[in-house]
Design a protein around this nucleic acid. Structure first.
Length: 756
DNA sequence: AACAACGGGCTTTTT
DNA sequence: GCCCGTTGTT
């Protein structure tokens, strides 16, 4: 290990790294080297003689954990870093619960229900209760249950809690508590935990089994928690209990970046730390190494509009940098084009790579206009989030087989695969099984494997098929613990008929589904190879624990490296990019309409904006559209209040799109129409000039461009058209500019003048 | 029992 | 505008 590893740290960072004993809190401003402190602190611990497996580090994402492990490995050398307990709350405690499952009455191979599974189950229960499913929407009920669990309120306590029940009653949903109760019963019967249960049940385990708690208190001599501002009560209590023995607890976070209150994160955890640990040490990291002065100061000017926060002074010694550019567009589609053009321009002039850019938005639904315009300009991009790989139907289907084999009681998995691929077990048969299962309060599997005993009223043919199905599942089950995960997974995919069914489907979707299955199997192979130790086998249940908690962000593929990143601001947390675009800066979108009713919600939106701004290293651009399609309707939008909140001196003139009538059908025509008939609204922005950026300007393919024509471009100078391809309105010209070389230009964007 | 056509609801954000 | 689930059709 390098001995001078502490040299690269500033004083505040070094203090936070070397003072390893006792409770401490590190308040780390955006870009101040928080991860650096965490990794060095852990490396330092090991250097001081701490055993890697006595260190527990809880992170917010698996990706963060993985990267941190690598960085620690680089500092200390060797393979010791592998033994550190590092991961998300959910994945670490899922592992611990698996080891201790019998203590709380769960099977060792319990299933982890994802949100979709949970909502399906809730829907089933709501139906069984005969409740109005318009009123008791699965999403709403799920959120109520989730927030109860995050505050450690079980189903019975929920029913006993006058305030909560009163809220439900006044919202016209008095029976959510009962649904909660039934939901818990059914999850338990299915041997399943949802995401929140992983934390809830950990609390139960530690509460009811002092010996177990004691064991882990001893094992984990050093605790570190990243993104502490985003922990909820349930997580807080786990940490508190685990740390109680040694009190070697370091929490790291930034109250200004708390953006998960909506799912139960509690800012008070950070504000109350000193109450739990009066003799704690506080370190503040205030020097920003990431961004220009303009960006840092602009972010400061935003966040000071919030009332509740820990005082700190984030500063930087970096260059002043460009001012923040604000782009106004006439429609969501124009917004997409302007941003794509801007990226294209910067790529051309500053030799920037695609991976230097990020487009950040408030909601996933906004991505489309950017996808389209980037694709037109041949700029590679990658969308993060949205429908994850693991949520695709074919993937969930195969995973359901794995789940059902590992845990026969898993109801959601059972229902998914009992007749997929088609094996002649129809809806009627399944409905009969469900009725029997509810009647006897047992799992579907129990019914299916004892059809006579439960007098299942279905014909012999169907019974035979069900019998074959359970026999097949059983034969896999018996080999599960002694077969390598990849080997058995491949066999399951094939024997169940999934591989063949998908392979036979020659539609493009079918082909892609088949490829996805292959990719999942490859992923299992990789997982198996990576985790193999001496003569210990990596089994399918090992993989299942992992996969339930994986997200797309966790498997970056190499070919995705040099691409413009499109993602929600939430997903961008912890990342940084030289050029950042925050788009859709409009009232009711950002800040979200739902946040406007309460001050605390609005403050969370503002922190979200703060997070977005501070992702930028060199240049920040904001954009908004004056009209936008929402649910298929064109609506008009006002610019976001957040733009006004930025200190004026950091904001550059608004770039206005020249509202020249465009020769294009549909949306833009309507946009132009709107523009014409709505009187100019009071402008939110003070400085307005009619600047048109080169490519963003009134470029429109309405001229008679032909090969051989000499043209002039605002930035590239004079040139000659050497080729034109594509059809109007997407005609693309190849133009040779003596000054800059050959360029591909989309005629409808490029502002080209014909010279001769 | 399987597929096509239709209609409703949705837009926060994620482990 | 799109996705999903339900309904209607053979």
């Amino acid at each position: 290990m390098k001995d001078n590893y502490l040299d690269g740290l500033n004083e505040a960072q070094r203090e936070a790294v070397v003072n390893t004993d006792g409770p401490c809190m590190v308040i780390a401003g955006a870009g101040s080297g928080k991860t650096r402190v965490l990794t060095y602190r852990i490396a330092h611990l090991i250097k001081q003689g701490a055993e890697p497996f006595s260190i527990l580090a809880l992170t917010f994402t698996n990706k963060a954990a993985k990267e941190m492990k690598e960085r620690i490995g680089n500092i200390i050398g060797g393979s010791e870093a592998k033994n550190i307990w590092m991961g998300t709350f959910h994945s670490i405690f899922a592992r611990i619960l698996r080891a201790e499952a019998d203590k709380i009455g769960y099977p060792q191979n319990f299933t982890i229900y994802d949100t979709q599974d949970s909502k399906n189950l809730i829907k089933t229960i709501v139906k069984e209760f005969g409740l109005d499913d318009k009123l008791y929407k699965p999403g709403i009920v799920y959120n109520r249950i989730s927030s109860a669990k995050n505050n450690l309120i079980g189903a019975q306590s929920y029913l006993n809690n006058a305030t909560i029940m009163g809220d439900d009653r006044s919202n016209g949903r008095p029976r959510i508590g009962e649904v909660y109760m039934a939901y818990q019963t059914r999850c338990f019967r299915a041997g399943a935990m949802d995401f929140d249960d992983l934390l809830f049940k950990t609390n139960v385990l530690f509460r009811d089994h002092a010996d177990v708690l004691y064991k882990y208190q001893h094992r984990f001599k050093y605790l570190l928690v990243d993104e502490y501002q985003d922990t909820n009560y349930s997580q807080y209590l786990i940490v508190k209990k685990l740390a109680a023995l040694n009190e070697n607890l370091a929490v790291v976070g930034d109250d200004a970046q708390s953006i998960y209150a909506f799912r139960g994160a509690n800012i008070q955890n950070i504000l109350n730390f000193k109450k739990d640990y009066p003799d704690y040490k506080l370190y503040k990291l205030e020097q920003n190494y990431r961004s220009t002065q303009v960006i840092v100061e602009a972010a400061n000017s935003i966040i000071k509009n919030n009332t509740e926060q820990i005082k700190k002074n984030v500063w930087t010694s970096n260059d002043e940098g460009n001012r923040i550019k604000v782009i106004k567009a006439l429609s969501d589609n124009e917004e997409g084009k302007l941003i794509a053009n801007d990226i294209y321009d910067i790529q051309q002039h500053y030799n920037a790579k695609a991976l230097d850019f990020a487009i950040l938005y408030r909601t996933n639904a906004q991505s489309r206009s950017f996808e389209e315009s980037l694709r037109r300009l041949n700029i590679p991009y990658k969308i993060y989030g949205g429908l994850s790989f693991y949520q695709r139907k074919e993937i969930k289907d195969l995973l359901s087989y794995f789940r059902l084999i590992a845990n026969h009681k898993d109801e959601e998995a059972f229902k998914r695969v009992i007749n997929y691929p088609k094996r002649g077990i129809g809806k009627t048969s399944v409905d009969h099984m469900i009725i029997k299962a509810n009647e006897h309060k047992v799992s579907l599997w129990e019914i299916a494997s004892n059809m006579q005993q439960y007098q299942l009223p279905i014909n012999a043919g169907a019974q035979k098929k069900i019998g074959e199905f359970t026999a097949m599942m059983n034969s896999f089950k018996s080999r599960l613990e002694e077969t390598d995960a990849y080997d058995i997974a491949k066999e399951i995919a094939s024997v169940t008929g999934m591989t063949k069914t998908l392979h036979d489907d020659k539609t493009p979707e079918g082909v892609s589904r088949y490829e996805n299955i292959q990719e999942l199997l490859n992923g299992i192979k990789e997982f198996s190879d990576k985790n193999k130790e001496e003569d210990k086998l990596v089994t399918l249940p090992d993989f299942l624990i992992d996969v339930a908690l994986l997200t797309d962000a966790d498997n970056d593929k190499p070919e995705d490296k040099d691409k413009v990143a499109l993602m929600t601001i939430h997903a961008a947390k912890g990342l940084e990019f030289p050029y950042v675009y925050i788009v859709g800066m409009e009232e009711n979108l950002f800040p979200s309409q739902l946040s406007l009713n309460s001050r605390t919600d609005l403050e969370e939106e503002r922190r979200l904006f703060y997070v977005a701004i501070t992702r930028a290293e060199k240049k920040l651009t904001l954009s908004y559209a004056t009209t936008r399609y929402r649910w298929g309707n064109l609506i008009s939008c006002e610019s976001s209040r957040f733009i006004e909140e930025i200190d004026e001196k950091y904001v550059d003139n608004v770039t206005i799109f020249d509202p020249k009538p465009m020769k294009k059908p549909s949306s833009s025509k309507e946009a132009a129409f709107k523009m014409k008939f709505s009187s100019p609204k009071k402008e939110n922005l003070k400085k307005v000039s009619a600047v048109t950026s080169s490519s963003a300007g009134g470029g429109s393919d309405n001229k008679d461009f032909v090969v051989g024509l000499k043209v002039a471009h605002a930035k590239f100078g004079k040139g000659k058209i050497v080729n034109i391809e594509g059809a109007y309105p997407n005609r693309k010209a190849t133009v040779f500019f003596p000054n800059v070389g050959q360029k591909q230009l989309l005629l409808k964007f490029a502002k080209l003048d014909i010279i001769e």
